[in-house]
Amino acid sequence: MSANEDQEMELEALRSIYEGDECFKELSPTTFQFRIGDHEDPKAFLLDVSWPETYPETAPQLTLQAFFNNRISPTTKQDIISKLEEQVEANLGTAMMYTLFEWAKENQADLMEHHQPVKDAATLNPSNETSSPVCSNKKKEKKEQLTKAQKRKMISRTDNKGELPRGWNWVDVIKLSKTGGAAED
């Protein structure tokens, strides 16, 4: 069998096994995402797998670069990838995705045993240490909120372009002159 036939057969098997499973996501016919653990589980992670053209004769590409994994330290990610790559090497030449996903689910505790949650992934610097958190005591200035009546009044004053007509806030000089609105001495 050619590599493409093997891939098609494994893809069909994965679709039938994981149909309706929210942990499995097929991003393309050769790229998959599998969540190990529940959403609420702090030790859960998303495994991204991509098949090269010659898969299963060559190893698939495994990554943990999904945003979901930002709370996992880089050293823990590297440990997980290296342990998964050992499983890939043991299964090279065969359809291994189901085996790999199930092995990761069964060994999730071992894979995440040294996991120390990263509090804020944005504060990581390249040396994998967390820097002191930046204090953000700035309060956003609130815009003055208009009531519905005020909004309706504003809309009724505008033309079809949303602009107020020229002189909308001018005093009607003619009315004032007729009513005797001039200052009294």
Results as ranks from 00 to 15, higher is better:
E102V: 06
K178F: 07
N160Q: 15
D120L: 07
A3C: 13
P56S: 14
N4I: 15
S73N: 05
E141D: 09
E184I: 15
P42M: 11
K138M: 04
S16A: 12
T179C: 13
N169P: 03
S136V: 10
V118N: 07
M97A: 13
K175Y: 11
V171S: 15
Y98V: 02
R15F: 00
Y18Q: 03
P165M: 07
L47W: 02
Q65R: 12
P29T: 08
E12Q: 15
P29Y: 03
T123V: 08
F32S: 05
P165C: 00
Y55G: 01
S177D: 09
K83A: 15
G93S: 02
P60Q: 00
W170S: 05
E184Q: 15
M154K: 10
Q108A: 02
L92R: 01
D159P: 07
Q7E: 04
Y98S: 10
T75P: 10
L64G: 07
A121Y: 13
K77G: 08
E26G: 04
L84I: 03
L47H: 02
W168N: 03
K138E: 11
D41Q: 10
D41P: 04
R157A: 01
E102W: 05
L100Y: 01
K83S: 07
G162C: 09
E86L: 10
L27C: 00
T147I: 00
M1C: 07
A109P: 09
I36K: 09
Q150C: 01
N128Y: 12
R71S: 13
W170R: 05
M97H: 15
L11W: 04
K140H: 07
V134D: 14
K83N: 13
